[in-house]
Structures are given as C-alpha cells and as structure tokens.
Design a binder for these strands. Structure first.
Length: 590
RNA sequence: GGGGCCGUAGUUCAGCUGGUUAGAACGCCGGCCUGUCACGCCGGAGGUCGCGAGUUCGAGUCUCGUCGGCCCCGCCA
C-alpha cells in the first residue's frame, strides 16, 4: 500500500465527490480491455465503482492494468469525474461517476479463483464453504450475515432500552442427565473428569435471577451433539432471556415489542400485535402439530366418533387399539393422479402411517377404495364435518395419536403448497400455550419433560402431579412463525420442594438429583424470586429474515451434515502427547 | 442406526435403451480492439467421468462396495 490511505469505500463515491482526488482500494470484479481504453470494476463490501485507464493520459498505469486479473487486490488513485450521459450505468449506485486513474498499485495478485466471484452462477455448497472467503465477497454470500448482524444489533438495542443486562455464562460447564447428547471437554487438572459444553444456559440464568439480576439476556453459543438437519447445526446461537416477578403476559408483551422492532428495522415490515394464541390442545386438534403454519386454513377434522362402529376395518382397528381417526379436506384436489396419491401416501408413511385413506368427491359419486364400506350416515357426517364439495378430496388417517397428527400435519403442509394456499409475505405469528408438562416415553419406560425439568406446572394442575401426571399442563409457551418454532420458554419452578417433586416424577435418581442439581435446589431455598423467560433460535430467525433456505447461510463458518468444519476440516486427530497429558486413550483404531 | 438424491473440464451443467475421438456455456491462455459495464471479434489449451471391484467383446452409462455433499426418518429435555 505504501503510504496510501483509502479515502472511501468503493460503493460510496457519488456526484458530490466529483472533481475530488480519491484513493480507492478493493477487489477486481472485472477488467474490460479495449486495447486502448481499459475499464476495471473495483469492488468491496459496500459496492462497486468503475475505474478508467487511458493510455494517452497515464501510459504507465494503463500498462500495469493490462496485467490485472479477477480478484487481484488493487489500490487506485485518480480523479472522480462525471460520466457522459450516454455512458451512465443505471444498474449500479455509483453509475453516474467513474474514477479517472492516474496511478495504480497491485496490492496483492490473486490466483484464478476456484469459482467465479459473482451472483450469476451459484457454486456448489462444498466449494462455497471450503472457500467461504470467496463466497463472502459475493453479495449473495454476505447478505444473510449482514441481516443477522442488523437483527442482533436491533435486539441488543431494544433489550438495553428495557433495562436488560447481558451476562456471560460459562462455556465449560457440567453435563446434565436430561436432554441432548453433550459435547465433552476433558479436564487436564482432573484426569478422568469432563466438562460439558452448554446445551443452553438454562440453570445459570435461573441462578442469576436468584442473584437479583432481574432482567437478563445473552446472545450465546449452545452445543448439541445430535444429527444435523437443514435448520440444525451442532453449535448454534440462542437469544436467552429471563425475567423475575413476571407472568407469561409480561414475557409475551416484551417479545412482541421486540419482534415488532426487529421486523420494522430489518425488513421494514409492521407487525400486528398482540400475536395469535393457541392452546397446545387446539393446535394439535386443528393442525396436528404444536408449530402450525397459520398462513393458510386446511384444518384437520376429528373423525374418531364418526367411525366408532364403522365397517371400515382399518378405522375400527385403530380405534380399538386406543388410536384416533382424523381427516383433512383438500378443496379442488380431485384431479390428483394415482401417482400423486401414492406420493402422498409415501409422505405420511415417513411418519409411521401404514396407509392413507382418500375419497374423491364428484357430483355423481364418491370414488375411493373405501366407498363400499361407507354407510350413508358416515357420508353425511363427513359432509357435515368437512364441508366437502364436488371436486374435493378427503384424506383420512387412522392410527395412534402421534402418527395421525404428524402424518396429517405434514400432508396439510404439502397440500397447502400444492394448492397454492400459502400466502407469501404474511408473517403468521402465534403463541402456543398450555403444553403438557411431561410425556410418557414408551422406549424408556418413564416420563420425560416436554419443555425441560425446570418448567412450572399450572397451579390448578398441581393435584394431578401425583395422580395423573400426563394430564398436567405446564406454564410453557412457544413462539411460532409460519410453521417454524422460533423460541420457547416457561415460568420456572421457584420452590425447591416442587422442583424435587418434578425431578422425581421424571424418575431422576434421588442421589443424582443432589449431585446434578444440588446447587439449583440450594439457590431456590435461599430466596429465589418467581421468574420465567424464553430462548430464541437466533440462526432460525436470521434464516427467516434473510429468506435463506438453510441454516448454513446465516453462519459464517458452518459445519457439514457430518459435523465437519468445511474450512478447517475439524475434528482432526490430536498429538498423542496431548492425549497423554489428559490421560486419555482412544478405542477407535485408525 | 435407516431411507432417498447427487458426484463428468477451473465453474455451472448436458451426455438417451451400454457402442467411434466425452460435449456446451462461462472462465482461463494468446492475439486484435479508445466508452465498455455479463464489452466484442479471432485462435488455443484444458477430463483419473469421486475412488475400487464386478458384469460385458465394450462401462461416464448397469451391479456391488467405498468416500464426500445434500434432503428426510430416528435423535434433537
């Protein structure tokens, strides 16, 4: 660079700067060599500006420019001039001006890049993330991170305005029995012992409440060693919030205000508040899921009673086994082909359904493999309950509660898309309330917490804790947007006795309760205020705000589906001496 | 742990029921060109068809295995 100092960024020069002497630095987007005149598009994060080299004015600079290649890093000094009317480029913000170069320095030449650094062709994800630095030079690569940054800075401003305090909690912490698989970190000072990376700062933030921190938040990395998905990474970021002396209403109002501001400042969209609210039971009943996409209707219909004494064996058999029958009317879907119906059957099959019953309703008849088993009374009931009309299809599923709901919920999403019912541009927020406190895990033969073990039961359900735990509802809530779970939280248990009772209901061994949660129980016994909070998936929110198809797009250096860092190739083997120091020997031979 | 899709030039892709020397566009290299902005024109180079077996007279194409990427189920309090 020598002693040169950059005067502004490439996207910034405008007509106000014309006549000025500018020094610009950036990357070579393209070179257009006309033999005589030569143009260079100089780019940085802020944008692009055209540099002109004229061999008659500056033969030396022009000569150097002839050897400039894509992605070379340049510094150019010259005069900013107006372009003549015919040569103005309306497609870029700096298109009215250009830099007449007097002197050019190649700060660092670049090898030919492994993929073109522009938004024209999308490189494969493998090369995008292997060469993430090239990807980030493209607007398409950088934009999701810019939106993420704006979102987080808006959130910090907002919470700061509301007197929240950001506190950092430990990353080297303690493994706890419930929840996802932990990432472990061996301890050198304590051979054979391990820290765990936090799955969330849950217990620390509750302890902060006991410490009187009152209004806490943290934008914090969390770790879960589970298999990846399009919207799941092994390390992800939570917006963690906790407040003392609050009711759910206080949390809702705070979150709605925050979301309003985020959508206003990041997307320029004005959200209506208060958000919709659904009980868990209503959400499950009408949509078959606890995270319904409310951008379209297509509600499910309960049909168990209709078919209680039916001749349709698949229905009565499922009901006899304690299952349910539910249906979904797809308006105007009567033209579905056999192949399409097979595909839909395969779709519900993914969630365990053994088949998918369908009826095509036309003016003259009901076409279905089931027709001959359906009584007139059942047809009347179906007409009443679904409002079916000629040209529609009724889908029905009979199986246990989870399979029916999950199958139909996903069928509903698919049909919503196929029938073009999803209203684009609509932000359909909803709170989902009154989740069950616990659910029975057949595989494990015990109850597990639906939210987490520190969630308070509803007060009116306390008597059921002993007699019928499955019917106890919790003071938990989720925030759902367009079918995506953005965050969830709850009012916490602040009584040590109740906390012990819930832990024992979850069949946590009484010895390990004190081992694992002793510090929490002790804190609850030393003046813990009633408190509650919520945590959001920052990455998912950023995905939504940036219209990104995958979580990888909103993370600077994401991991592949097999949890490998595509840039550094971590995890890797370590030196045996490091292992010896930790007193660790691996079983995996390699 | 299970199911599915994909892997061909530097990049994005085409390559049919197996059949001559594996193609296109962009990029790259060389030449020409003084108002282009996805500059244009002429010429050229560039391939372990992910890898390994198998079937076959013959495999980019079929089969099996393997590696990698992506999507899904399980898992993710």
């Amino acid at each position: 660079m020598g002693d040169w100092q950059r005067s502004c960024r490439c996207g910034e020069p405008g007509e106000g700067d014309v006549g000025g002497e500018l020094t610009l630095m950036g990357w070579t987007q393209s070179v257009r060599d006309h033999g005589g005149l030569l143009f260079i598009d100089l780019r940085d994060r802020s944008g692009m500006v055209q540099v002109v080299l004229n061999p008659e004015v500056t033969p030396e600079a022009h000569d150097k420019a002839k050897r400039v290649r894509s992605e070379d890093v340049l510094a150019v000094r010259g005069t900013l001039v107006h372009r003549s009317d015919e040569t103005v480029n309306p497609n870029i913000p700096t298109g009215a001006v250009e830099l007449m170069a007097r002197e050019l320095r190649v700060l660092n030449p670049s090898r030919v890049p492994p993929f073109p650094v522009d938004d024209e062709v999308e490189p494969t994800e493998t090369s995008r993330f292997r060469y993430r630095y090239l990807d980030l030079r493209r607007p398409r690569g950088l934009r999701p991170l810019e939106i993420r940054h704006r979102m987080l800075s808006t959130i910090r401003n907002h919470l700061n305005d509301l007197s929240f305090m950001e506190v950092e909690t430990p990353v080297l912490t303690k493994s706890t029995p419930e929840g996802a698989r932990d990432y472990l970190v061996p301890s050198r000072m304590h051979p054979g012992k391990f820290y765990a990376l936090p799955q969330s700062p849950q217990l620390f933030k509750q302890i902060l409440m006991v410490g009187g921190v009152d209004r806490y938040f943290q934008i914090v990395r969390c770790f879960r060693d589970e298999d990846l998905r399009m919207d799941r990474q092994p390390e992800f970021t939570q917006l963690d919030i906790e407040m003392s002396f609050v009711q759910p209403e206080d949390i809702f109002a705070m979150v709605e205000g925050m979301m309003q501001r985020v959508f206003r400042e990041v997307r320029g969209v004005e959200l209506e508040t208060p958000f919709c609210r659904l009980s868990w039971e209503e959400a499950m009943g009408r949509y078959g899921t606890d995270k319904p996409d409310l951008r379209f209707g297509l509600e499910l219909v309960e049909l168990s009673d209709t078919f209680r004494d039916s001749k349709v064996a698949i229905f009565t058999r499922a009901l006899a086994a304690g299952g349910i029958v539910k249906g979904l009317r797809a308006p105007g879907a009567g033209d579905l082909s056999r192949k399409e119906l097979d595909d839909l059957t395969e779709l519900v099959g993914r969630y365990g359904a053994k088949g998918l019953a369908w009826i095509k309703v036309t003016d003259s008849d009901w076409q279905s493999p089931l027709t001959k088993f359906l009584s007139e009374a059942e047809k009347d009931a179906l007409r009443d309950l679904t409002g079916v009309q000629s040209g529609d299809v009724i889908f029905m599923l009979a199986d246990d509660f989870d399979i029916v709901n999950e199958g139909l919920a996903n069928l509903r999403l698919e049909m919503g898309r196929r029938l073009g019912l999803v209203q684009e541009g609509v932000q359909a927020f909803t709170w989902v309330l009154d989740f069950p406190l616990v659910e029975w895990r057949k595989a494990e033969g015990r109850f597990t917490a639906v939210h987490h073990p520190f969630t308070a039961p509803r007060e009116e359900d306390l008597p059921l804790l002993e007699s019928d735990p499955a019917r106890v509802k919790s003071r938990a809530y989720d925030l759902v947007l367009n079918g995506m779970e953005l965050g969830g939280g709850s009012i916490r248990i602040h009584s040590p006795e109740l906390q012990r009772q819930v832990l024992s209901l979850l069949d946590v061994n009484p010895d390990t309760v004190d081992d694992q949660f002793g510090f929490l129980l002790e804190a609850l016994d030393l003046g813990a205020p009633p408190h509650g909070g919520i945590a959001f998936g920052v990455d998912r929110l950023a995905m939504l705000l940036s219209d990104s198809p995958a979580i990888r797009d909103v993370i600077a250096f994401p991991k592949s589906q097999r949890a490998v860092c595509m840039l550094t190739e971590a995890p890797t083997a370590v030196d045996v001496r490091q292992l010896a120091e930790l007193q660790i020997r691996t079983l995996a031979g390699d």
